[in-house]
Design a binder for these strands. Structure first.
Lengths: 210, 210
DNA sequence: TAGATTGTTAATCGATTAACAATC
DNA sequence: TAGATTGTTAATCGATTAACAATC
């Protein structure tokens, strides 16, 4: 089956399945069922079986799924069975928080280069990395074969950084800047604006008392 | 129309419309059309008109929408025309980044209390706020009438914090911990796990070169 | 075997879009 | 008026779910 025919909404659920399987494996569990997995995620068992069926047959009737096997298959499908080098642009508060976040390494990513435009920050060491001048972004990203990037600069600078990343051959961007980026359709973009999440939840809250 | 009948997917698009309208207003623009708004967001004009029609009639045929008026209407619908007090739990790297993030205030939120369990941090001042002991969470949240919270603690502590927030009467949680929370259906939850975003983008990247 | 659970088909449900009358 | 754009209906498209044969 042509991968392009698989609905994007299915692809977006796979990391959630994978995360739950990692957790189950960590807890020492060896086998699960679509029903158990769905129960944990608040998703119907039918949907999980249907989603997986786009990629193959991974379970056994009557038994369910071998957790380590299915985890391996999902890692392979999502291509996170090998590490991806990620560039981080912006070594401010968000950048620092990301650098100290330990959750990247064992889930398929490693921060391989960090950039800032502030001359005061360029040259400093943060953990094992040296802050590079954003002016060298194109060259460094090309040379190191980096294909993904995280934008953690102020909103007003995000578009400029995104343009530079596009020119450097990056194929996917995760951005913390609360701004819509204008990029060609082949560039994958994920947005993480905390306010957007908050604002859709307030709709459902009963009116605030004065 | 009963608000419960409006699809959640529509509600989730409203903050994006609002964010774009804020930007247009900041740029001094006074009028827009569903076509222009859709063009900026990569959404069809029909969908925008349909979404807005769930709530009323906000435009003028032949002219479009008055930006300030529509912005005000959307703020009212989303209830972000008045400030919501938000509790922040976890004053680590992510917590600090959030406290220095200036984007909350003018979009309907203000961080009104911050908590940590580390005795070394409790009592310290961060900007205008004092770090409170998480043991006092219930009482403080009740007394101050706080209805929303942001979880920025390590994954292993997130469920415990969520349970405490539930008990304290919080109605909506935004969490940075990469863990699915078990909470009753009336509690609204938004997840911001950067790895989930990255992992669905790698699916679309051509295989990495060795 | 009996019970459980998969993978898949067909039916249902819901969301998006095309088309257009209304009207500024 | 002529041109533009809204709000809304009906048609289309796509995603979810119910049901079940296959089979471990």
């Amino acid at each position: 089956m042509n991968p392009l025919e698989i609905p994007e909404i299915v692809i977006k659920r796979l990391p959630l399945y994978l995360r739950t399987l990692e957790l189950m494996a960590d807890e020492g569990q060896t086998v699960t069922s679509s029903q158990e997995l769905g129960g944990r995620l608040g998703i119907s068992s039918t949907q999980i079986r249907k989603d997986l069926s786009y990629f193959g047959e991974f379970g056994k009737q009557g038994t369910g799924y071998d957790i380590r096997f299915l985890r391996g298959q999902l890692r392979g499908i999502l291509q996170v069975d090998r590490p991806w080098k990620v560039a981080l642009i912006g070594v401010g508060d968000v950048g620092h928080a990301l650098l100290r976040f330990i959750g990247f390494e064992d889930r398929g990513f490693s921060i391989a280069a960090i950039f800032d435009k502030d001359p005061q920050k360029v040259g400093r060491r943060v953990d094992k990395l040296t802050v590079l001048d954003v002016a060298t972004l194109h060259e460094v990203i090309r040379r190191r074969g980096i294909r993904m990037a995280i934008i953690a600069v102020p909103a007003c600078e995000a578009q400029g950084v995104a343009d530079a990343l596009l020119g450097a051959g990056v194929g996917a961007i995760l951005t913390y800047a609360p701004t819509l980026l204008r990029l060609p359709p082949h560039m994958r973009v994920s947005y993480l604006d905390p306010v957007v999440g908050l604002q859709s939840m307030t709709y459902y809250l009963s009116p605030s008392r004065p």
